[in-house]
Amino acid sequence: MKICVTASTGTIDAQIDPRFGRCAYFVVVDSETMQFEAVPNLASGASGGAGIQAAQAVANKGAKVVLTGDVGPNAFHALSAAGIEIVTGVSGSVKEAVEKFKRGDFKKTGAPTVGDHAGVSKTQR
């Protein structure tokens, strides 16, 4: 299964970037083989609709799960519609996050965790 983790650089040891729509990279990890593909987030500098653009990129990569810090309502809505499971409040490295997910340490997030435009404002609280 493909797991997408929002990351500050494009490696499996990268730290998680807590902003979904405006993260620097998506690291898409195959949970069985731990092989990964790093995809730069073209929406990170987008001036509007970053969450949706990012969600589209993740959906197009075929990910089934997103591990991130916070996700806004537009992205939440889009990811949910694509049947992608969302886990928020995740920190540490990409690798650790995927391993924790495999162990079943995470709970699926049922609602957006931040307001509109949050990637622009409230991420490093």
């Binding site: 970053a50 889009a78 694509a82």
Partner: peptide, 26 residues
């Protein structure tokens, strides 16, 4: 097919494997 969301400069459309979402504010 995703052509609409790819075309939209404002990212107001999202294509999932089973439907297309519209974001009116964008």
């Amino acid at each position: 097919c995703g052509v609409c969301s790819k075309f939209c400069q404002y990212h107001a459309l999202f294509t999932s494997p089973n439907n297309v979402l519209v974001f009116p504010e964008l």
